[in-house]
């Protein structure tokens, strides 16, 4: 059964049609990527799901029920890490749990269980400004998954990192994901990242966005610690071809 389903969803902001016709579904434990040219409205989909925006057409259901306001189905990780500079790392990590109403102590106990896997041991009392970009990103990711929501929404989580750190983070993230199997929707414009991490990939057109391709990635995991397979390579080429020639993106 799908944990999240979008049917013919459309959004118009002012006079601009941002999403035209978006249909997608996410099953439990699945890793989905949304791939598209910049400005296609990928992040708009997340704004719909987190309740920052209302859709005009179509239906969104979470666990079979219509997405209601204040329904907490999703844990969201924004593009930049959005760590609060005035809170220590530990207090940043517990933020989501505290907002849910958990006591600070219980929230800390919960977060502590994850610190090792996220490479943040010894940095709990640091402020975000004292951490490297990769560590901040891991902290932001931990802040997201510790909330234990049914679906994780990751908005270009590795986009701001340098190439080397990004590859390391993707590899690390694949390991974490293989352990935990979080149901995940990843927004990205990085074809290689999408192919490396996803079970399925939705490709969006330019604005107003609709789904122009749905591609399954059959490659066995783990994928990041081996040389890239011919199969994955062909898939990347295929996706790049779609993005370059079929999104309606004119330069």
């Amino acid at each position: 059964m799908s944990i999240l389903e979008m049917k013919n969803v459309g959004v118009t902001l002012g006079n601009t049609a941002v999403l035209d016709d978006i249909s997608m579904r996410v099953a439990e434990g699945e890793f989905i990527s949304i791939l598209g040219p910049s400005g296609a409205g990928k992040s708009t989909i997340f704004r719909l799901l987190t309740g920052a925006l209302q859709h005009d057409r179509g239906a969104i259901t979470c666990n079979g029920r219509p997405l209601a306001q204040n329904q907490q189905g999703f844990a969201f990780m924004p593009q930049r890490d959005a760590l609060m500079p005035w809170r220590r790392i530990l207090d940043n990590l517990t933020l989501g749990l505290e907002v849910q109403g958990m006591t600070r102590k219980d929230a800390r106990d919960r977060v502590m269980l994850f610190l090792h896997d996220f490479g943040l041991i010894g940095f709990e009392q640091h402020y975000p400004a004292q951490l490297s970009g990769g560590m901040r990103q891991r902290a932001a990711l931990l802040r997201t998954v510790v909330q234990a929501r049914p679906v994780q929404l990751l908005d270009e989580p590795f986009g701001a990192l340098d190439a080397l750190t990004r590859t390391r983070m993707q590899k690390w993230f694949e390991e974490r994901w293989r352990d935990a199997r979080w149901t995940t929707v990843l927004v990205t414009h990085d074809v290689r990242e999408a192919v490396a991490l996803s079970d399925r990939i939705y490709v969006l057109s330019c604005r107003p966005a609709c789904v122009i391709a749905e591609v399954a990635v059959p490659t066995a995991r783990p994928r990041m610690d081996r040389a890239i397979t011919a199969e994955a390579h062909a898939l990347e080429a295929h996706l790049l071809d779609i993005l370059l020639n079929q999104t309606g993106d004119q330069i």
Binding site: R47, Q72, F76, P78, R80, A82, M84, V99, Q100, Q147
Partner: peptide, 13 residues
């Protein structure tokens, strides 16, 4: 930072 506000609202704040 609007991103921090978005994040909090997404958490249900």
């Amino acid at each position: 930072d609007p991103e921090i506000e978005d994040l909090l609202r997404a958490m249900g704040a």
